[in-house]
Computed example of a mutant assay.
Amino acid sequence: MTEEEKSQQILTKKDINNAWRTWWLYAEVQSNNVVFQGLSHMLSLMDSLRKLYPDDDDYREALKRNSQFYNTEGTIGAVVNGMTLSMEEERATGENVPDEVMYSMRT
């Protein structure tokens, strides 16, 4: 990782481990026929998203974006959550990552 990439990195390993731990605990707890595991996905990312988006409006948009339809198996879902966090971090640092890319990866 270059120095420039490190300077733009917001999330720490602790943040990512916390997201994984929360997903592991809640992946199969909440599921419905509309968004399946979307709420568990959002719950696992909430703390990291707050760190990425200190502005309340941006934070709410990120929560909406990550509570949409999501259906996966409990263990492999953590990999997708990690990829989502990576894209959210890129977006928070000014990269152009469209909503459709994040949504299509989860579906």
Rank of each mutant, 00 (worst) to 15 (best):
L63P: 00
M83I: 15
N18D: 15
T93F: 04
T84Y: 00
Q9R: 14
P54S: 10
V101K: 09
I10K: 15
L49Q: 12
Q9F: 02
S104E: 11
G38W: 03
P54H: 08
M42I: 00
L63D: 04
L11K: 01
N17F: 14
K51D: 03
E3P: 11
R65E: 12
S48P: 00
Y103K: 14
R106W: 01
L25K: 07
M87D: 04
K6E: 13
S86R: 06
T75M: 12
E28T: 11
V101H: 03
S67C: 14
E28A: 09
Q30N: 11
N33E: 14
D47Q: 08
L45Q: 13
D56C: 04
D58C: 09
G94V: 08
V34C: 02
T84A: 06
G74N: 07
Q68F: 08
K64Q: 11
E4M: 07
L25S: 03
Y103I: 15
E90S: 10
L43I: 13
D15P: 06
E88F: 09
Q30T: 12
E28S: 11
T2G: 13
L63Q: 13
V80N: 07
E90L: 14
V35R: 05
N32E: 15
M105R: 08
Y59A: 04
V101S: 04
A27I: 00
